[in-house]
Nucleic acid binder design. Structure first.
Lengths: 193, 193
DNA sequence: GGACTAAATTTACAATGTGTCGTATAGTTT
DNA sequence: AAACTATACGACACATTGTAAATTTAGTCC
């Protein structure tokens, strides 16, 4: 959970742990705008004032939790093999490690990644696109004339990372109907272009 | 802007229009959790109590605005040509129409789609993935052995729609460095698998 | 174990926000 | 012009926020 080396006092760790657990609990029960410092402190069994000793406000706390998450993911994902070699295997083991890690902590990831805040607009668009793409995939006749347009690097990166994260989120929303291994293989073959 | 047929009173329309404009303005200036009914009414030049005559609270208002947006997008995107034929053209004109529409209303879409709420976690993951994919794309040696794994339909839909929306959001965040037409071509060639 | 230090609690307070009353005023419809 | 209805206004009880003491509790260090 990534503590600065100076932060050794068990009271601090305990309090923050309580707060984090309480926040995740509340995020499961209600949308984030309904979560108040009052409720949070009450659920965490700590005094309301104590909260302010650790975080400026709830958005600040969310940010720090996201930092911790990113640190952990980076640890899991950190590749020992260098990218040149990795690219040549079709397996992409990193992806599988990532999905396994998320599956192991599915409760946490599902809550924080699918929490309804103001992803409203994005969500709506996502649903629209899903319908449309679904219809398109349906009627695909493999019209491959391979015009081979050169693809802008940054566009490919936008496309690939959005696809990856969106797929993971959708997978979590559906309570992981596939194994991480299977999903990793599927994604790999989708992004084979 | 989607008014129920019964809603003809110009006062109602005016008030709602003021509220919507004020909300978008405030979303541009501050993160959503800082927007209060007080501030909103003040900015919209209406009485605070009047707000409650139209919406239950701010999340409710956001939801209704998202409904309106979805309706508009659907209008723009609605395809006259049937999907069977459309799939055979490599153009996918719908995508270009969508991007043009978004570009025309870029101010609105940029604000509502990139507003920092609690997309914190998703955003962090997005950045991580972008780095990783970037590195991978960098060192790609076109290791195509075309193992041709069958792809689950729903996974492909998740993947495709997330990629599309994420790309659009990233494009907006960067203030649209490419024309809608160019981006549409790029995306089409990316999702050519 | 005892002294020192840091964290947490407790109580209090002003400021702001929420949601809901009547009632008055203005604009709309027929 | 009369009937209708949305909006404005003032007021209310209540919750939340952020901060500031003073005090208690718990952990650290020797």
């Amino acid at each position: 959970m990534a503590n600065s080396p100076q932060r050794t006092d068990p009271r601090v760790l305990r309090t923050r742990q309580f707060l984090k657990e309480a926040l995740v609990e509340l995020m499961e029960e209600m949308s984030i705008e309904k979560i108040t410092v009052n409720r949070l402190a009450q659920r965490a069994q700590i005094n309301r004032v104590t909260f302010y000793l650790h975080y400026r406000d709830i958005p600040d706390m969310l940010e720090k939790m996201a930092d911790d998450m990113a640190e952990e993911v980076l640890e899991v994902v950190r590749d020992d093999t260098d990218p040149m070699e990795a690219a040549q295997e079709e397996k992409w083991p990193m992806l599988e490690r990532l999905l396994v890690h998320i599956a192991e902590n599915a409760k946490f990831y599902k809550i924080v990644l699918t929490s309804r805040k103001s992803t409203i607009f994005t969500d709506r668009l996502f649903k629209l696109m899903a319908d449309i793409i679904s219809a398109r995939v349906e009627s695909r006749v493999t019209a491959h004339d391979a015009s081979e347009v050169t693809v802008q690097r940054d566009i490919a990166v936008w496309y690939g990372s959005a696809a990856l994260i969106g797929t993971i989120i959708a997978w979590l929303r559906e309570d992981m109907p596939y194994t991480p291994q299977y999903l990793a293989r599927q994604i790999t073959s989708l992004r084979a272009n």
